[in-house]
Design a protein around this nucleic acid. Structure first.
Lengths: 241, 241
DNA sequence: CCAAAAGTGTTGGTTTTACACCCATGG
DNA sequence: CCATGGGTGTAAAACCAACACTTTTGG
């Protein structure tokens, strides 16, 4: 192969290569479920290009981290939830996707529980969650990334028990159903949904009921992690809706 | 953002950046189905590192092409089949995956019809298809890539009519079943398989039968592309086995 | 007692699985 | 006439879709 490092100048990190190289970034579509709607985290860009526009959070991949580690690091910079599910979505490499220079991005789907507190990012002027149906036009090709991400989420929701990543530890079944309806975009019959959900064998009733509600309180359920792992090992874990 | 191009030296393409950058490559797991077995294309490395070892075909991503275009170009360099199905598998970015320097690779799954003639590649000492069960230890992290690729192929075969990409234009149903069995690794009941295959609605009998066979000749089928497109548009295309 | 949501079963149709024999052809 | 693979049907079980009413609770 060709194109290895040739020399280092005295400038801190500057480096010369025999052939030009694209810059490599990660971008994350961070989804959260709240108030019956799917939300996605956007940051307002503080500099050109696309200054003032909203964009998916992301950043450069460092020389000493994997692509996934870079995605995780960027997420921690914007928001700091305890646990983040991360799944690689694919690369976006249109030659002109960044007007400054050649930048290739690896996109990720991230799922977080509830809407976490959003930190003021260093280079992000502002960051907040938008309901996916109220997302404005985005910078770069981030509209395309988000659209692929939403499609991926639909597929995965039907295939894997990823709802565990989006819901609080304990939740009423109604909430699980609302999540399915929000992501899949269609109403589901309550009786059929409950049958399927319980038959999947990964939900257990806690015995407690929700509180502070103005009508009959629903039973709270939780995912049974042990059972999920066991099923997953046998390749038997399926979605619910 | 930071890290833009700073200067070009007089060397043909040499270029200096403010921060180091990983090199970006593509690697392809090229699958073909022949003699009842799934095969994958490997090239023997002509230089260090891993000189003499087998590896997946791949190469650098150019500055004026998308990642997918790079994969297609590399494929044409190794083998030149009329049509190649290409699907991005994901990135492989372990920091030490290449002993020379930081190289991040985007892996692809490619499907070709039959075993095409393999061209002598420029930097490949040798290239040929191996039955997937007889693949030797591979260079870099290509064992890992291949294993993810095989898993992806299993999933896709159950989900999409990708068998069309691996079979000749006309084939007996036995051949389709053999493909499913080779990829999924388990025997399938012939009667049930045929029912499902025909019910999928994308196969049509040609009226012709195979020739040169020492027993009763089987009817030849082909995929109905029009019908596939129509179903695909409605999101209804499913696998068969 | 009203409003709001929780909770619960049945039926009919469709799909999936398991399973074994006869037929056509070539040698 | 034998060997090889081609081709076919049925019954039981599982699964899925459609569908509406009663119960609990808080206000």
């Amino acid at each position: 192969m060709k194109g290895g490092k040739v020399e280092r100048s005295r400038e801190a990190m500057a480096v010369t290569y025999r052939y030009p190289r694209a810059a490599l970034t990660v971008d994350c579509a961070v989804f959260a479920f709240a108030e019956g709607a799917l939300h996605v985290l956007l940051i307002r860009r503080g500099q050109a290009p696309f200054e003032g526009m909203w964009a998916l959070p992301g950043g450069f991949v460092g020389m000493e981290e994997t692509v996934e580690a870079a995605a995780r690091r960027e997420l921690q910079e914007e928001t700091a939830p305890d646990h983040v599910y991360l799944e690689e979505l694919g690369s976006f490499s249109r030659v002109d996707r960044d007007p400054r220079e050649r930048v290739i991005s690896i996109a990720f789907v991230a799922l977080v529980r509830g809407i976490p507190p959003v930190l003021r990012g260093s280079d992000a002027a502002e960051a907040r969650f938008f309901a996916v149906n109220e997302v404005p036009a985005l910078a770069f090709d981030h509209d395309a990334i988000l659209s692929v991400a939403r499609e991926r989420l639909r597929v995965q929701l039907r295939t894997l028990p990823i709802s565990v990543e989006l819901l609080p530890k304990r939740f009423p079944l109604r909430e699980l159903q609302a999540l399915y309806e929000a992501v899949l975009g269609s109403a589901i019959d309550k009786r059929n949904f409950r049958k399927r959900a319980l038959k999947a064998g990964v939900l257990v009733a806690t015995g407690d009921v929700e509180e502070g509600v103005t009508h009959r309180a629903a039973e709270l359920y939780r995912f049974d992690k042990k059972r999920m792992e066991r099923l997953e090992k046998d390749g038997l874990v399926l979605g619910i809706g």
